[in-house]
Simulated scan of single mutants.
Amino acid sequence: MSRRTRVPIGAAVLTTAVAALGVVRATGSDDATAAGGAPPPATAAVERGPLSATVSLNGTLAHRGDEDGAASPVINHAAGTYTRLPAIGDRIGCGEVLYRVDDEPVLLLCGALPAYRDLAIGDRGRDVRQLNRELHRLGDDRAAGVAVDPDDHDFTWSTRAALVHRQHRVGAEATGRVDRAAAVVLPRAARIAGTVGTLGGAARPGATVARATSDELEVQVDLEPSQQGQVRRGDRVRITLPGNRSTTGRVARIGSVARTADEDGDVGTATIPAAIRLDDRRAAHGLDQAPVRAEIVTAGVARALSVPVTALVGRTGGGLAVEVVRADGGRGLVAVRIGLVDATAGRVQVEGAVRAGDRVVVPSS
């Protein structure tokens, strides 16, 4: 089971949920008996077993962007003319050439801290540690015959040697320093989602040249206001892919910024973006911007006593009941309190004077 393994019987919100399904039948008496000569009623068994509550959403299979699902802007800091730009769908690895200005390469460096200054021997700071970590991860220090400490905040001679190796490898001028204009820092390797700059156009410092996502596919959904309190990080998800193929995943991120669908900014229509990470990325290989169906499991009960939702009837004076068929063929209403509703299975958790194996009346098909 996931985060919640028990749902209190008789929760008012679940009673409302069952009523909203429009399947609760009304009865005028708390007692019922079989009429003479009447055909036997349709029945279903009271069962004990697992139930799950789910939130069902339409989503899109897309490449991961920032925390709210958007592609990250690629900000240019070089002045000149764009002489090479990436194409939509290109995959650019950390330490590789992202684009060119005046035919000079601009490298993609990976990390959380954006580039804000030039770096050279003697500099110190978090951005230097980020550079040391990346050069070590790429293996440039070992290839240059030096050892760079990935946790070092200092730009050392070893840093310079590793950087020179990287610059030689990608065809950049081997200066042994990082010019802010010659590098772009993004959180991870990039997949180009769109370009803004124009080949042959002016490259202006501070302008967006492209937009990038990661190469990781995820399911992106929007949570309605009524769902935002139900869904949490780590919840299990069943995903239906195009072609009716299915796979599984977990809620990885829930955005922090609400979005409205109308121009008036009505908060009542605001949704929160959420992202679902696939358990098996190979299941979605070759897909992009594909519509999917996501069923997020928000609660679970391992051994719930349950009946079909359609077995519920409304009691005179309020409350709910099920109509139990006795061994002698007679029938009687038994008051029940309800708990978790499993909309996928069409069953509801009940508590009352019923037990597993009892037969309850359901509408005839």
Rank of each mutant, 00 (worst) to 15 (best):
S2A: 06
S2R: 10
I9W: 06
V13K: 10
V13H: 07
L14N: 14
V24K: 06
A35D: 06
P40V: 13
A42N: 15
R48A: 13
S52C: 04
S56V: 13
N58G: 14
T60A: 14
A62S: 13
H63F: 15
D66C: 09
E67S: 13
G69T: 01
A71P: 07
A79S: 14
A79V: 08
A79Q: 14
P86H: 07
P86A: 06
A87N: 12
G89I: 02
D90N: 09
G93R: 15
D103F: 04
L107I: 15
L109V: 06
A115Q: 09
Y116I: 10
D123E: 11
D127F: 03
V128K: 01
R133E: 15
H136Q: 15
H136A: 15
R137Q: 12
G139E: 02
D140A: 10
D141R: 07
A147N: 12
V148Q: 00
V148N: 01
F155T: 03
W157F: 13
T159D: 00
Q167V: 07
A174P: 08
T175Q: 04
R177T: 15
R177S: 11
R180M: 15
V184P: 04
A193E: 13
A193F: 04
R204M: 14
P205V: 03
A212N: 13
L217K: 08
Q220I: 04
D222V: 08
P225I: 07
Q230K: 12
Q230A: 07
V237R: 01
R238K: 09
T240V: 15
G255V: 03
G268D: 05
A274L: 04
R277L: 10
L278N: 12
Q289T: 05
P291F: 00
T298S: 11
A302G: 00
R303L: 09
R303N: 13
L305T: 13
V334K: 09
V336F: 07
I338W: 05
A343N: 10
V348A: 03
V348Y: 02
V350W: 05
A353W: 07
V354N: 00
V360D: 04
V360R: 09
